[in-house]
Computed example of a mutant assay.
Amino acid sequence: MRRIDLRKLNPSPDWRARALSKQADIDNGVIDAKTASAMWSELKPQLKDLSQNKCWYCESREDRSDNAVDHFRPKSLYPWFALDYENFRFACTFCNSIRKNPKTGESEGKGDHFPLLSGNKAENRAQRNTENYILIDPCEPADVGLLDFTEDGLPRAKFPHQRNRNRRAIDSIKYYHLDHPDLVESRRQLALDIRDWVESADAIYDPNDQGDPKIEKAFKGYVSNIAKVIAADAPFSVFAKKMVKGYQDRYWIEVLLECA
């Protein structure tokens, strides 16, 4: 999961005015929150741009999917927050919708889930700032670092011995369906590609200093491949960067990461 800077989302004054009007209708019981879907759908292109077309939760890019504007706090549980754009997240189908994990048979996906570590559910915007929620929020810089991955592409908790941080990571993996076999396999294949590029580049690193243009071109090609997969717009780029960091005992990898 890569941090998303939601401050860059800047809806037009017209959208904000219409959203306030619709929210008032929801608050007064004139309409149900779900009937205002056209409002948040208008912002989908802007939300999508913030992550270079990637799901904010799993970093996958599903070009064939409609994807969705997810409400981080579900509109069914927090109708008063239904049209606040700070509650919108761009999500793929597997993260946003309830689906069965084909490997475990368990139901996963966010749906209308919003579990709390403790305390009561927020009833207004002010209480939202003190709500003790579980799910990792891609818009919170302190949250995204709670996730980690194995070389096989499996998601795991970054801090397994810290009770609440561990629980937030483990539960988020389930609710966001981050362990779906397709995602795991995509990460695993990416790790193998990175290993091959690193080993191939490493094998010609010293000869590359001898001035042979063919070797120099080959070395640059491998490094370019690595640079592309750790770039912010690449699918699974946070996972890729973690894999590349595993090779930073090579000087040229260390330099590459410093400049990424």
Rank of each mutant, 00 (worst) to 15 (best):
N96S: 11
N124L: 15
D70W: 04
D66L: 15
I170R: 10
G105H: 06
D212A: 05
R18Y: 06
I26V: 14
P102S: 14
P138H: 09
Y78L: 01
H161K: 08
K22N: 08
A126K: 15
A260C: 09
V184D: 00
D5W: 05
I26W: 01
K242T: 03
F81V: 06
K100V: 10
G29R: 14
E199I: 01
P235Y: 12
D49C: 04
H113G: 04
E216L: 07
V144R: 04
V198C: 11
P45D: 00
P181W: 04
I136C: 01
L77I: 08
P45T: 02
Y205I: 10
D27Y: 02
E59F: 14
E42F: 15
G211Y: 10
S224R: 12
K48D: 08
I134H: 06
R167D: 05
L178P: 03
R73L: 02
R156T: 09
L43K: 08
A201W: 00
V229N: 13
A36M: 08
L83A: 09
P74S: 14
R89N: 03
L183M: 14
R7W: 01
A24R: 15
I98D: 10
K217H: 13
I204A: 13
L117V: 13
L192P: 02
A260W: 05
A234H: 09
D193H: 14
A240S: 09
Y247Q: 01
P115H: 13
D66G: 13
L117D: 15
L190G: 14
S21Y: 11
R195M: 13
G153A: 04
Q189F: 09
D182K: 12
D152T: 07
I136A: 00
L154R: 12
I98K: 05
P207Q: 03
N166D: 06
G145Y: 04
N120A: 08
D63A: 10
H113I: 03
V229Q: 11
Q46Y: 03
G221K: 10
R168K: 11
D152Q: 15
S37I: 06
L146K: 05
D14K: 03
W197P: 07
L83T: 02
D49Q: 14
R167V: 11
I230P: 01
Y85V: 03
S41R: 09
Q162W: 12
A36Y: 06
C139G: 15
Y175M: 15
E86M: 13
C139A: 11
R2G: 03
M243F: 14
F159P: 06
D14W: 00
A157V: 08
L116S: 09
L178I: 03
S186V: 01
I215W: 12
D84W: 13
N208S: 15
F114P: 06
R73W: 02
Q248I: 06
A24L: 00
D137W: 07
K54L: 05
E108G: 01
K217A: 15
F239R: 01
Y133P: 11
L154K: 03
K34P: 00
F219L: 07
P207V: 08
K217L: 08
R188G: 05
R61T: 04
P235R: 12
D49K: 13
S21E: 13
S172V: 02
V198E: 00
D193V: 00
D196N: 15
Q210D: 06
G221P: 03
R18T: 00
R128C: 15
N67W: 06
E62T: 05
H161T: 12
Q52T: 14
Q127W: 00
K8W: 03
Q248L: 06
F236L: 08
R18W: 09
H71G: 00
A19N: 09
W56I: 10
S51Y: 02
